[in-house]
Design a protein around this nucleic acid. Structure first.
Lengths: 207, 207
DNA sequence: GATAGGGTATGACAAATGTCACCATTTATG
DNA sequence: CATAAATGGTGACATTTGTCATACCCTATC
């Protein structure tokens, strides 16, 4: 695994490099000290993961990340932070970063890198507890330009979760027959053929 | 590091144990198959991390987690999920779980365990994308750590377009029976139940 | 040459799904 | 009140879907 480290504190850079390379199978292929260098080095070196300070002189990690992700949507960027700042974190996530690590928490760095490399995202517990609330705020999706009743929307939701008629029935305290009938009506309304198309419709138009 | 595994599928349990113990420094100190066993074993064995299926017969992982976390706020619980458990996941995070892992994504398991052990939390990218304002679509395209052949990916694609087996067959010049068989294999590989769940999987992880 | 692995195929079978006709209850509205 | 609309229900039916056993062909590999 190839890592690019960008942090304006040279001491931090050196420490990280030491820790990371002690692993044996992870290589630090480059180091930079501000956002501009991050961009240049990223494109030059194409690391598996970019480990970058979120706050730096000249150009912040956030700005650099924006540029890099704009050019390469698959870039894996993991931020280094010295304290927890919602603003920064949220912005980082908006950009498409893979997570963040508290700089001081050295032990977490290597496992986090590995997790990110295989496509997971990594956060501290603090941000996690906030996610449910954040999600709830978002959950008011208004995609009902179709003539669908609340009940029908509820059914569609279940179908889109991959539930069978039986499961939907028991989860909503209805008979299986009723579920079948109502879904049949929904399919008719939306001009679809089967539940699979309904689920697809959901993810394309209502999610 | 000591791990307790709880999953009602014995095969999954055995596989996880094999993968995890291949690491050398991680030990599976116990295995259970439902929520009740999870609670009992947790208190008896005091594992560093509890790796638990989120949905199980008898007592769900969620219920068990609630009990365990109620008694031990520091418990590190990592859920095993199958792509379709959004609601469960949110609840799990509210409870204080450390994150979740997609069952099929074997490579992610060990790094995730290590991350959790040192206090980080771990998620799939899908949850992250739901955070408010995260408009930049990330590509999950590399979701093919699932050992799917090109042919299989092609089939998944058609299913995700809402085609029936017959339609897929004629569009790919195969017999309908073959399509059925191959989809059956795919479902098995991804631990899904039917084509609807497969389409959902596609839009959540491969679109 | 033997073997393993992918891909294709059949037939049979159980389960799930979608449709239809028809009925009952409740709620909203003229 | 009457009527319509929304909701919940049953039984029957044809199709579709998913699974399984089994088989053939081809290719790569030992």
């Amino acid at each position: 695994m190839k890592i690019l480290i960008v942090d304006d504190d040279r001491l931090v850079c050196a420490s990280l490099k030491t820790i990371i390379e002690a692993q044996g199978d992870i290589e630090v292929i480059g180091m930079g000290h501000n956002g501009e260098e991050a961009i240049a080095l990223y494109h030059q070196l194409k690391p598996d993961v970019l480990l970058m300070d979120i706050r730096m002189e000249v150009m912040t990690g956030l700005e650099a990340a924006a540029v890099i992700l704009d050019a390469d949507k698959a870039a894996r960027i993991l931020f280094l932070t010295t304290f927890l700042d919602d603003e920064y974190i949220i912005k980082a996530l908006k950009l498409g970063a893979k997570g963040y690590i508290i700089k001081q928490n050295f032990e977490s760095i290597v496992p986090s890198l590995r997790a990110v490399q295989i496509g997971q995202s990594v956060f501290g517990q603090d941000i996690v507890t906030k996610i449910p609330g954040l999600l709830n705020q978002l959950d008011h999706r208004e995609a009902n330009s179709f003539d669908l009743s609340d009940k029908e929307l509820e059914l569609i939701d279940r179908v889109a979760q991959g539930l069978s008629n039986r499961e939907i029935a028991s989860s909503l305290y209805l008979s299986e027959g009723t579920v079948r009938n109502r879904i049949s009506v929904i399919l008719e309304k939306l001009n679809l053929r089967d539940r699979t198309q309904l689920a697809i419709f959901y993810y394309k138009n209502m999610a």
